[in-house]
Design a protein around this nucleic acid. Sequence first.
DNA 1: TTGATCGGAGATCATTATAGTCTCCGACTG
DNA 2: CAGTCGGAGACTATAATGATCTCCGATCAA
Lengths: 157, 157
Amino acid sequence: MLKISKKTDYALMALQHIASVQFGDTTPGRVVNTKEIAEEYNIPLELLAKVLQALSKSGMIESHNGPKGGYLLARSAGKITIAQILESIEGPLGITDCSHEKEGEFCMQREHCNIRTPLLKVQDSIYQLLNNMTLQDMLGGTPLITIQSPTAQGVER
Amino acid sequence: MLKISKKTDYALMALQHIASVQFGDTTPGRVVNTKEIAEEYNIPLELLAKVLQALSKSGMIESHNGPKGGYLLARSAGKITIAQILESIEGPLGITDCSHEKEGEFCMQREHCNIRTPLLKVQDSIYQLLNNMTLQDMLGGTPLITIQSPTAQGVER
DNA sequence: TTGATCGGAGATCATTATAGTCTCCGACTG
DNA sequence: CAGTCGGAGACTATAATGATCTCCGATCAA
């Protein structure tokens, strides 16, 4: 069902938190440590630690060791896209197994596969979608959204 | 990494096959049985059987029992969207756990969750993407996909 | 300089989702 | 009425995920 992992959820929450602290009015520029985020959002501390380490490795946030250490955004929230966050945690986006097939790898269906090309197009569209939305877009409070129920929506167009 | 399941892959291949047989030039209107598809695309027979049964249950294809039995599209390929196929196999589309939360279910982060609304927005965009592409689009060659960015376009329409 | 506080990293375990298999049933056609 | 088809359930194996534990090195401040 195209679900993103809990780890990615945590990454998004953490980054949102870090960004709002960093650019907020109260304590701008403050570093945020793992424990603070874990407690605020009820995230298992050590799991969140791994997530933040991954984000740090991918250059999205900067880490500072020692007492009073923690994390800072490495670049502005507007330059961190959802796609980048997702890929930092889960690896390259691919809706199908053959999306990133290396030479020598073949799926059993490849020979007569009739859906590869259209699926890659779908994937590309999803990627563009995620790459056009940034962390900045997630900051601005509560956007009013009408949630569309997939089942409630008809077929006719 | 937002991957769709093998079963969904199989569903797409099977439907594509059924559709092209049904609307093809050689034997239009012919029913297609499970074995034929399984052999053509190297899909485990019994797994494919389950997939086709699911598609049948959801009213996407019609089944015909007995010798010379098999499957037929229940409606035109243009009225079968990728989203519908996906949901027939994997259940309601939801990129996050809380997408279809029932009363009484709560995630540990819900209380202070800061990403729920934007994520639902992303989900809605992906849904629209998948619901705007039909089986028909997968038949010809190059499907026309309208890319909708959540930030650029928003949900309100 | 030393101890408490922080992140970095690896191994490990439990749980769940997925992929695939096996068996039996009932419907239909010729 | 026999062989061919789909329908349905239980079942197993494997992989992905979520979570935990342990130890390490860096840093800062008393």
